[in-house]
Structures are given as C-alpha cells and as structure tokens.
Design a protein around this nucleic acid. Sequence first.
DNA 1: TTCTTATTGCAATTAGGTTGCAATAAGAAA
DNA 2: TTTCTTATTGCAACCTAATTGCAATAAGAA
Lengths: 114, 114
Amino acid sequence: MQRYFGDRSTAVSVVDLVEHFRGEMNKVTVYRILSRMEAEGIIHSFSGSDGLKWYAACKQCTNHSHYDHHPHFQCKVCGMIECLEISLPIPKLKNRKVDTEIILLIGECETCAS
Amino acid sequence: MQRYFGDRSTAVSVVDLVEHFRGEMNKVTVYRILSRMEAEGIIHSFSGSDGLKWYAACKQCTNHSHYDHHPHFQCKVCGMIECLEISLPIPKLKNRKVDTEIILLIGECETCAS
DNA sequence: TTCTTATTGCAATTAGGTTGCAATAAGAAA
DNA sequence: TTTCTTATTGCAACCTAATTGCAATAAGAA
Ligand SMILES: [Mn+2]
Ligand SMILES: [Mn+2]
Ligand SMILES: [Zn+2]
Ligand SMILES: [Zn+2]
C-alpha cells in the first residue's frame, strides 16, 4: 500500500483501492491501513463531489500536522483527481470566522482536453 | 416540502429532512420529491464535508439552468450550512480547463462565535 | 364514470463504511 | 529457542444513506 501511493501522483478513491487489492487483502484491511497511514501523515483524505472518500499521498505532512489544506482538481471526463500545490486566498465573511476552505475544481485534464 | 424550503435560508441535510417528515411521509417519498424539486430548479444539492447530501432553496434557478455554483459556509460548531451569495474567482491552471469550482468554507457562524 | 398518468408506501436491495471477535503474525523478553 | 505480549488481518455481521420494484392510491382528462 505504501508503494502504491509512492508510485502515483494522483488521488485514488477508496472504492478503487478496495477493488485494486481484491484477492490480495480484505476490504476491512484496506480501510484500516488507510486510517493508519493517514494518522501517520503519509496520506490525506477528502470527499469527492459525489461524496466518496479519496486518498492521496502527502508531500509535507507529519503525524502531528497535516498540510493537506490544498485544493484538488477533478477531470469531469476521466474522473481523475489530483492535488494542487497552490494556495487560494481564504475569503473573509462578515460576522463569520472562516478558518478552512475545501475546494474542488472541476474541468478537463490535459489528456482529455486535447 | 415547498413551504419548508420557502421558510428557510439555510441548507438542510437529507438525513434531517427524512427525520423531519417522519410519520408524515415515507423516506422514499422525501428522496423523490427532492429529486423532482431539483429537476424543476426549485432547490439545489451538494455534498457536505462528510459526504452527506444537502439541499437548499434556489434563488435564481430555472429548470433549464442551475445558478447554484456558489460557495457554501458550514459552522463547525452547530453544523449549519448556508449558501453564500458571493462569487470567487476561478483560478487558471496550466494545461487544464477549469469550468466549475465546488467550495465549502468552514468556520464559526455568528451565533457560535460570540 | 372511465381511462390514463402521476404520486406514494412498503419491502427489499445496493453500496460505502464500521464493529466484534477470533486467528495469525510479529516482536520483545526470558 | 521458548514464552509472553502486542499488532495485524480475515470474516461475518452490522450500520446507514440511497435506490429499486411493485402494488396501491390519488389526481386529471376524456
Ligand atoms: Mn491532496
Ligand atoms: Mn447553495
Ligand atoms: Zn481526464
Ligand atoms: Zn454555528
């Protein structure tokens, strides 16, 4: 599982992971390893637009602080999701205190757009 | 159900709706009416940070075009979600075509912050 | 009324995700 | 090596959101 995330730069849904490791390990084990790796700061998770859970490798996270508050981009054609190493400004709202923003940009990736 | 959304300015999760109309109508009916109202442009839906489905009244939608591409704000204390009538700039990405952004701002609402 | 379509209730099912518990694997201590 | 202890895994069962099939009822048009 460690190797799986080490070799890829894009995110992967839990559904796909369970399918990928089917026959090799139980789906409960997949969920548990993912939880462990997230707690250790190796990967981070987020919800896709359809509500499914996705995971991706962390680039600058430790088990004490997750630097995973970055936007993600999903291609509406092939479904691929990738982490964006950019930081967008958090808008200020009157009478409300905003401290986090969850952003999912949707469009077409390089492959699907050409 | 129409009245329910007409009287409120915040979003409501489907779970809460099913609970609210329990005894009055079947949960399947709740889901079906919501689908219908969304198709008619009366309400719009989105996923919360936990993956649950939420609905809110549309202010400028028709059955032909949904103007529901606005950010939402969720209070991490009371869980309330509201539509934000602001539009944030869609960032440009190299080699990718971005046409939609799903944004959920998280923080504390006026009531919970004071 | 009669025919036709739209809506609803209920049970069953699907799908993502979790929990309990026993079995096994891995490590440390002796 | 042997023994004790902890961590990991498999499997079945369970939970909850959401969907589907189908019969029953309601609503409208003819
Ligand atoms: Mn990421
Ligand atoms: Mn909204
Ligand atoms: Zn693509
Ligand atoms: Zn609040």
